[in-house]
């Protein structure tokens, strides 16, 4: 059985140290700009922080994967080029990329840095993945969260690179890298700016009956009764009205987190090379708890023991969890 890398989120240098100390084999992180898909205020690394953090991780035997996984709009490519150049200078172990122009620049200018294909590239078939491997020498693909375990196993037999799968965290519904819902509402683009449902455009409004309405920009995303816990207004997790429905419903998906802890043995048997924990925007406490729990579980499976799954429910979005598409294609 392959010993899978545990790939952990680092939104800040402190979170990076926590993740490394908690047993991460690799951390992924980005610069404080549009070059990465979690371009949130207060998050990510200055160049100086990146350099120090790479040194910290390497001293403890952990790898640093640099996310440069957005799509530069024409006229702004230099920012992405600079991010790649800095990453190489600081000795990052791999780039996580999505844009073809970015992949080409990385492969030709920094051929010694491994290339990982971001989930933002939306490569969901062996042919798409083989294309990126052939053209740019991609060494690992981050698979979209839409495949069953069986499909992942079959995929592994048809591609010449490693596979990384998400195992915990946000359960993105839309094909990553193909969603402009946020830009339609806010003028900030997930693909070009690395922004999804920006806090600066979130509004909570208390109605006369005590209900709480949540908006993104000028659009109502959900409404909660006075005694309900209000969720963050993400467009694909909102409740809407449709003519064929009697009541507001989650048109896309409920606020729910992905948790594949019980599927870890199956995923390892399917040949997955790396497990990814989502959540660069989450707290240090989250990173510590989730990384420690999955470290124990993965090591237990490798030792042939029953994985002791910590209760991670408290850390999940809306305190609900799902195995999403991984367990059954009826999810689709």
């Amino acid at each position: 059985m392959i010993r899978p890398d545990l790939v952990c989120p680092a939104g800040t240098p402190a979170a990076l140290r926590d993740a490394v100390d908690a047993g991460a084999d690799a951390v992924y992180c980005g610069f404080q700009n549009a070059t990465n898909a979690r371009n949130f205020p207060g998050l990510n690394f200055t160049p100086a922080e990146m350099e120090k953090s790479v040194a910290y991780a390497h001293a403890k035997g952990a790898k640093v994967l640099l996310a440069i996984n957005t799509f530069p709009p024409a006229g702004k490519f230099d920012l992405w080029r600079e991010a790649l150049d800095m990453g190489a200078r600081f000795g990052v172990d791999a780039y996580i990329v999505a844009d073809i122009g970015v992949a080409h620049y990385a492969a030709t200018t920094h051929p010694d840095v491994r290339l990982h294909l971001s989930v933002q590239a939306a490569a969901s078939s062996p042919e798409a993945i083989r294309y990126y491997c052939r053209e740019f020498g991609v060494k690992r693909v981050v698979l979209p969260r839409i495949l069953t375990v069986g499909e992942i196993r079959d995929m592994g037999r048809e591609i010449p690179c490693e596979m990384e799968t998400f195992i915990f965290g946000n359960h993105g519904l839309m094909v990553e890298g193909r969603c402009s819902l946020t830009n339609y509402v806010t003028g900030l683009s997930t693909n070009m700016d690395g922004v999804c449902s920006p806090a600066s455009q979130v509004h909570y409004e208390r109605e006369a009956d005590g209900a709480l309405t949540t908006r993104l920009g000028e659009f109502v995303i959900d409404r909660f009764a006075a005694d309900d816990k209000a969720g963050y207004p993400t467009i694909c997790k909102g409740r809407y009205l449709a003519d064929c429905r009697d009541a507001p419903y989650y048109a896309f998906e409920e606020p729910i987190s992905l948790n594949l802890s019980t599927l870890l043995p199956d995923l390892m048997a399917a040949g997955v090379h790396a497990f990814k924990i989502e959540g660069r925007q989450r707290s240090r406490a989250y990173v510590k708890a989730v990384v420690s729990a999955f470290r124990k579980s993965v090591d237990a499976v490798l030792a042939g023991a029953d994985p002791a799954f910590a209760d991670l429910l408290a850390l999940t979005e809306g305190r609900k969890q799902t195995e999403g598409a991984f367990k059954s294609k009826t999810w689709r």
Partner: peptide, 29 residues
């Protein structure tokens, strides 16, 4: 979808709006 590029690369083809050609570097490649 990029899957067809595996076969069509090297022969004439068009790219649709979901192929994410956002910049001139990608276009040139």
């Amino acid at each position: 979808d990029a899957s067809a590029l595996l076969f069509a690369s090297g022969r004439p083809h068009r790219l649709g709006p979901l192929m994410n050609v956002y910049n001139d570097e990608t276009l040139a490649y």
